[in-house]
């Protein structure tokens, strides 16, 4: 595997890591704002973020 191929792969891994970490942080923030540790991961809040959809969360009543 040449140096350049390795560099490209490393860049891809880097981007994926940052994206995954970013997503996890985003989920963490959502988790805190919505159901906390009991978040069911239904993604109602993520899909309908424009509106206040707290009532759609199965864990937040």
């Amino acid at each position: 595997m040449t140096y350049n191929v390795q560099l490209i792969l490393v860049a891809v891994i880097g981007i994926l890591t940052v994206a995954c970490t970013g997503y996890r942080v985003y989920r963490l923030i959502l988790n805190i704002r919505r159901g906390g540790d009991s978040c069911a991961g239904c993604r109602n809040c993520a899909l309908k973020k424009r509106k206040n959809k707290r009532k759609d969360c199965p864990k937040v009543k």
Binding site: M1, V5, Q6, L7, V10
Partner: peptide, 10 residues
């Protein structure tokens, strides 16, 4: 078994 490069270091 791997050639020198950034992936190997990673």
């Amino acid at each position: 078994y791997m050639q020198e490069g950034p992936l190997k270091d990673l």
